[in-house]
């Protein structure tokens, strides 16, 4: 747990950010490995999966796509945005873990990584909750997150459609975990180091 000594956790914002970044960096590295392993194991030739590229379910969450945009966002709103991104993967990860059993060949390694990512995501959410309260005690998080409607695709009986669905999920997970990791490293410098690491 982020604060091993229980509720009254007296940890500095810097320390909380450092811990959160260790987890977010780890989650993205796992997601990258999972994406590359899936590609290596199931791709049927160069460019096979380029046809699978479709919109990520989190595209509805407006996120900064460059440093200048990131610098325009109010810090409190930015923390909430990161929480929304993370929370948007709670349900999809649950189904991803369950549905990997449908994949041909042996998806054991992929499933193990998905389980690890799910656990670390929950841990990171816990930490971000604490960070949010330290950044702004009156922070109000309306529990928002991007709805995921991808379950039918993960249960497709057509192997190619199934592979495309999984590929797009792994691609989007890699992308969003990179965003979270990138944003937390940026926010740490902006908030905990007054904009200058």
């Amino acid at each position: 747990p982020f604060c091993p000594n229980g509720a009254s956790c007296r940890v500095s914002l810097r320390e909380l950010f450092d811990r959160a970044i260790i987890v977010s960096h780890y989650i993205h590295s796992l997601s990258s490995e999972m994406f590359q392993e899936f590609d290596a194991q199931y791709s049927q030739g160069p460019g096979f999966f380029t046809q699978a590229i479709s919109m990520c379910h989190t595209a509805s969450i407006s996120t900064p796509a460059g440093k200048e945009q990131a610098q325009q966002i109010h810090q409190k709103d930015f923390v909430i945005l990161v929480i929304h991104l993370l929370r948007s993967w709670t349900e999809p990860l649950n189904h991803l873990i369950t549905e990997t059993s449908r994949l041909p060949k042996d998806p054991h390694a992929l499933r193990a990584k998905a389980v690890e990512i799910q656990q670390q995501n929950q841990r990171l959410l816990e930490g971000l909750d604490k960070i949010g309260k330290l950044v702004d005690p009156e922070i109000t998080d309306n529990g928002d997150y991007a709805v995921w409607l991808g379950l039918p695709a993960l249960q497709s009986n057509d192997v190619e459609s199934l592979l495309f669905a999984f590929h797009n999920m792994f691609r989007c997970l890699r992308r969003d975990t990179h965003k979270v990791d990138n944003y937390l490293k940026f926010l740490k410098c902006q908030i905990a180091y007054d904009g200058s690491c």
Partner: peptide, 9 residues
């Protein structure tokens, strides 16, 4: 490279 803002580590 701007390493101060935290955008690139």
């Amino acid at each position: 490279v701007d390493t101060r803002s935290g955008w690139l580590i």
